[in-house]
Amino acid sequence: MNSGPALVSILRQGDTLVASVHTALDDSEMIRFQNDLVRQIGEVRARGIIIDVAALDVIDSFGSRTLRSIADIARLRGATTVIVGIQPEVAFAMVRLGMDMGQVPTALDLEEGLAYLARLRAVGAS
């Protein structure tokens, strides 16, 4: 993010990265977000990633493809991604468009997303 207010914030919480998108992103910003996030997975040795897309006005073919790419790359780097905060209208439009999140887990909001990752960890530990 070179100038102006941050479009996306990426916070670390233990071994989880929480990335919140604050505004509509255009395609280049989306790609930059992807690259930033993927880099940070290695830097902080993240095991879980939560991407909060509640502020995205639209998740179109490019947006959903990028989110899936992030999840795929993260998986290859050993981290699980959960997409949270997809707005009801956005979900409706995505279905109509013919998009979904593929194998990427989704959760209602940040809290549910963290709970999902916690369950995974519990299963992995037992």
Partner: peptide, 14 residues
């Protein structure tokens, strides 16, 4: 309103 706006915006985006 609502869903119609988002569907329209998504189509325009494409």
């Amino acid at each position: 309103t609502g869903t119609d706006l988002t569907m329209l915006a998504t189509a325009v985006s494409e």
